[in-house]
Design a protein around this nucleic acid. Structure first.
Length: 290
DNA sequence: TTCATTTGACCCAC
DNA sequence: GTGGGTCAAATGAA
């Protein structure tokens, strides 16, 4: 965070409100959309058909991601932080949810609930990810519950790490559909880091995803900026049908200036090479004589 | 047969 | 009493 000299901070420094942060993000997304459109024009100048088409596909993904994010943020501008003390007020949109599949079965059990309601108890850290593909991260999740949430039009889905039993991995995530747009957006709340990932390094990490799924990265809206790199990684497609998902979008957490100083953890080497190539074109055509 | 998902019941903080 | 989080039997898919 940039610090200003005390002499410049004459008014009492009011911390930015959540709505201010949201407006700032919306503004950045708008700038990003303009840049993406400009980038598209530059990419169209690439002479080689294959490279141009691939780059255009990436730009299209970026544009789609920015547009959908803008849509979500704007539609929920006044709702998102209404319940600032709770996480339960995020959802909005049309009605949905599942129906009754089975008849009611009377069961008697004798057990104790392990968890507290409300503020996730003491489980930390918490990361929130806005994505079109909530299941599309590199971890294996097992669904353990689904709950209709008050004032939410979509049920909240509860997942825990698929290795929670084997390796005592405490990672969990809650998935809340945000709207009924096409594709719908989901707010994914990640709770606890994966210990299974550190015990058993992901064997696919050095295997770039197939070119057909060039952008299996989710959108990350992490206002804290602290968990940006670890929140979402290159996807491990746990099921074959995941490979058919075409709604994944590239991460837009980096500006083009930041591209040069960051390592873009979400991109495969091939994608990274392409990004660098596009970036080079971008600079050349934007009059950057350096 | 095994594994994952569904879904009503249960627990507990508020 | 309400509502969010979790459990676990029932069920379906592979």
């Amino acid at each position: 965070m940039a610090m200003r000299p005390k002499s410049e901070m004459s008014p009492p420094p009011a911390p930015p409100s959540p709505s201010d942060q949201r407006d700032a993000v919306i503004e950045e997304l708008r700038k990003g959309s303009q840049l993406a459109e400009f980038l598209r024009q530059q990419v169209e100048l690439i002479p080689e058909d294959s490279r141009r088409d691939a780059a255009l596909a990436n730009v299209t993904d970026i544009t789609t991601a920015l547009a959908s994010s803008l849509s979500v943020l704007q539609s929920e501008r006044e709702q998102y932080y209404c319940s600032s003390s709770s996480d339960a007020g995020h959802a909005s949109g049309a009605s949905g949810g599942g129906g009754v599949r089975n008849g009611a079965v009377a069961r008697t059990r004798n057990r104790k609930a392990k968890h507290r309601r409300g503020t996730y108890g003491e489980e930390l850290p918490i990361k929130e990810i806005l994505t079109e593909a909530p299941e599309n991260d590199r971890f294996h999740w097992r669904k353990y519950g689904e709950k209709k949430i008050l004032h939410a039009d979509f049920p909240r889905l509860y997942y825990r790490c698929g290795y929670s039993d084997e390796h005592k991995c405490p990672a969990k995530k809650y998935v809340q559909q945000q709207n009924s747009s096409d594709p719908p957006m989901f707010l994914v709340t990640l709770i606890n880091d994966h210990t299974c990932d550190t015990l058993f390094p992901d064997e696919d990490q050095d295997q770039p995803p197939s070119s057909s799924s060039s952008a299996n990265n989710s959108q990350v809206l992490d206002f804290s900026k602290a968990s940006l790199s670890s929140a979402v990684g290159i996807s491990r497609l746990k099921k074959e049908e995941d490979a058919d998902m075409s709604v994944t979008v590239p991460s837009y957490n980096y500006t083009y200036d930041e591209l040069s100083s960051s390592s873009l953890p979400f991109l495969s080497p091939k994608q990274w090479e392409m990004e660098m190539e596009v970036k080079s074109l971008f600079r050349r055509h934007s009059g950057d004589g350096n």
